[in-house]
């Protein structure tokens, strides 16, 4: 059985999702559930940390596509971080770097969210 785990944590009103293992057509519904839960809780600033993600297929990529629009409509975003090269290659093949902000480190994505929040305040 493909192992796939999602761990959720919060940092300064930003939701961070850690993905671990294999994200394929079998496990993609788990990620859908996690995004849906965040939307239900009106949490729209989301970082997905891919450090421990071993595999992704288009079923997994499709989940990001399905939710990003709703999240951005609510002035939020999904930012992706810490992608192993193998995972980045798949995102890259589908042109996702044009659609999503992808950062090497989680801290960069956190700063970006904070900058946006400050701009709104100003």
């Amino acid at each position: 059985m493909s192992e796939f785990k999602i761990h959720h944590r919060d940092a300064d009103n930003i939701s961070i999702i850690d993905l671990k293992g294999y994200l394929d057509a079998h496990t993609a519904p788990d990620l859908e559930g996690a995004f849906q839960k965040l939307l239900d809780e009106k949490k729209y600033n989301i970082i997905v940390n891919c450090r421990e993600l071993s595999y992704i297929s288009s079923a997994g990529l499709g989940v990001f596509m399905a939710y990003v629009e709703d999240i951005r409509k609510n002035s939020g975003d999904i930012k992706l971080t810490n992608m192993p090269p193998k995972i980045f290659n798949v995102f890259d093949l589908l042109g996702f770097p044009f659609l999503y902000e992808i950062y090497k480190e989680e801290g960069e994505a956190l700063s970006k969210f904070k900058e946006t929040k400050n701009k709104i305040k100003d």
């Binding site: 297929s57 288009s58 079923a59 990529l61 499709g62 596509m65 399905a66 990003v68 629009e69 798949v90 093949l93 589908l94 042109g95 996702f96 044009f98 659609l99």
Partner: peptide
């Protein structure tokens, strides 16, 4: 057309596109 494809956030068909690339 990948740009058009992504612009419309289509989910289906990504797999076929990937297969050809891989």
């Amino acid at each position: 057309d990948l740009k058009e494809f992504l612009a419309h956030h289509r989910r289906g068909g990504l797999g076929v596109y990937l297969m050809k690339k891989l």
